[in-house]
Amino acid sequence: MTIRAIRTPDTWFETLPGYDYTPHYVDDLPGYVGLRMAYVDEGPKSGAPVFLCLHGEPSWGYLYRKMAPVFLAAGARVIIPDLFGFGRSDKPVDDEVYTFHWHRNALKAFLDRMDLTDICLVCQDWGGLLGLTLPMDYPDRFSRLLVMNTALGVGKGTSEGFIAWRDFMANTPDLDLAGLMQRATPILTDAEAKAYAAPFPDATYKAGVRRFPALVPISPDMEGVQTSQQALRFWSEDWTGDSFMAVGMQDPVLGPDTMAWLRSVIRNCPKPLEIAEGGHFVQEWGEPIAQAALKHFGLTD
């Protein structure tokens, strides 16, 4: 099946405060040939722990601009892919292309291509809904977890905040991304909010933004539930790596209650770092989170 996709012109990414990393691209992932995935790859290419940072919706790799420098300063490698439909990656224009397993399999193809080991999964929002299902398929590749404001979609309902967000998105085909990010994260400057919106010049680029909230596996019959349930068993019973959790306490969608449940199903997950003023996009308070995680993992003094 040929997938119709569009690509955000590079000129839209000319002003990205704090995020001047050189993008890399791959356009021949098995099952996705012809679709270009963008990613950042900084730091040593071998012999160092890898921080694989997965963004959610409606953000992109720019979300990690405050955490990446901390990881790099500790001598780690940092890889930040943009999911298809987001960031500098190609954006299928038809909403129905976007499914749970279509994205999960794209991440698996990317992992296979990059051949990474000693990975710390860094995830939030959809970065966790998808990312938390990956280590069970690659148990020898993942050694650490840094998890923030996310969940596993095991088909057991959700919060009123999420339902409100899902319904809002279903009725907002041309979402004002910059405005949304500033309302959710008041500490953003106008330039930073504009950078978040850079991948989406108009509504035709926003199929992924529109589609993702409806894909969250909140009822038993939804795609991704069985995969997420398998992942839950992995994290509860088989995970032997080191974990660190940070929680944006002001998140109305995936906040303290959801994160308390997630902590309860991650084997040996310690008490979280609570970011009192942090919202859903808690990476905006990312520097102290990254520093605390590195200390916990024994990767810095």
Rank of each mutant, 00 (worst) to 15 (best):
Leu145Pro: 03
Thr99Ser: 15
Ser228Lys: 01
Leu262Ser: 04
Ile187Ala: 11
Leu29Lys: 09
Ser236Asn: 03
Pro272Trp: 06
Phe86Ala: 12
Glu42Gln: 14
Met37Leu: 14
Phe234Trp: 12
Pro220Cys: 02
Gly34Cys: 04
Val70Gly: 08
Cys53Tyr: 08
Asp28Cys: 11
Gly279Asp: 09
Phe71Arg: 13
Pro58Gln: 02
Asp202Ala: 14
Thr185Pro: 07
Gly131Gln: 02
Met114Gln: 14
Tyr196Pro: 04
Glu287Val: 00
Met222Asp: 07
Ala151Thr: 15
Ala76Phe: 07
Gly279Ser: 06
Val147Ile: 08
Pro17Asp: 06
Phe212Glu: 03
Tyr39Thr: 10
Lys45Ile: 09
Pro49Cys: 12
Trp285Ile: 02
Ala164Arg: 15
Asp95Ser: 13
Pro252Lys: 09
Lys45Pro: 00
Gly279Gln: 07
Leu232Pro: 13
Gln283Leu: 13
Gly248Ser: 08
Ala198Met: 05
Thr204Tyr: 12
Ile3Met: 05
Leu130Gln: 06
Ala207Ile: 10
Val40Glu: 11
Arg166Glu: 10
His103Asp: 10
Met249Arg: 05
Ile163Asp: 12
Pro186Tyr: 01
Thr22Trp: 00
Met169Pro: 00
Gly241Glu: 05
Asp90Trp: 05
Asp118Met: 07
Trp165Asn: 15
Gly298Ala: 07
Val122Asn: 10
Gly208Ala: 10
Leu63Pro: 00
Asp202Lys: 12
Ser143Val: 11
Tyr196Asp: 01
Ala109His: 05
Asp118Ser: 13
Trp12Val: 04
Pro139Trp: 08
Met1Thr: 15
Pro58Ala: 05
Lys271Cys: 01
Tyr138Cys: 06
Tyr196Lys: 02
Ala198Ile: 06
Met67Leu: 11
Trp12Gly: 09
Val225Met: 06
Glu96Ile: 04
Ala207Arg: 06
Pro201Phe: 10
Arg65Thr: 04
Ile289Val: 15
Val253Asn: 08
Ala246Tyr: 05
Ala193Asn: 08
Ile266Lys: 02
Pro69Gln: 01
Gly286Glu: 04
Arg183Cys: 00
Thr185Phe: 05
Pro9Ala: 13
Gly298Arg: 13
Gln230Gly: 15
Cys53Arg: 07
Tyr98Ala: 02
Trp235Ser: 03
Leu273Lys: 10
Gly131Thr: 01
Ser59Leu: 02
Pro201Gln: 11
Ala246Ser: 14
Arg144Phe: 06
Ser46Cys: 08
His24Lys: 15
Arg65Leu: 01
Ala214Leu: 04
Leu121Ala: 13
Thr117Ala: 15
Asp257Pro: 01
Leu254Asn: 05
Phe84Leu: 11
Leu146Asn: 06
Phe100Thr: 02
Leu145Tyr: 03
Pro23Phe: 04
Pro252Ala: 03
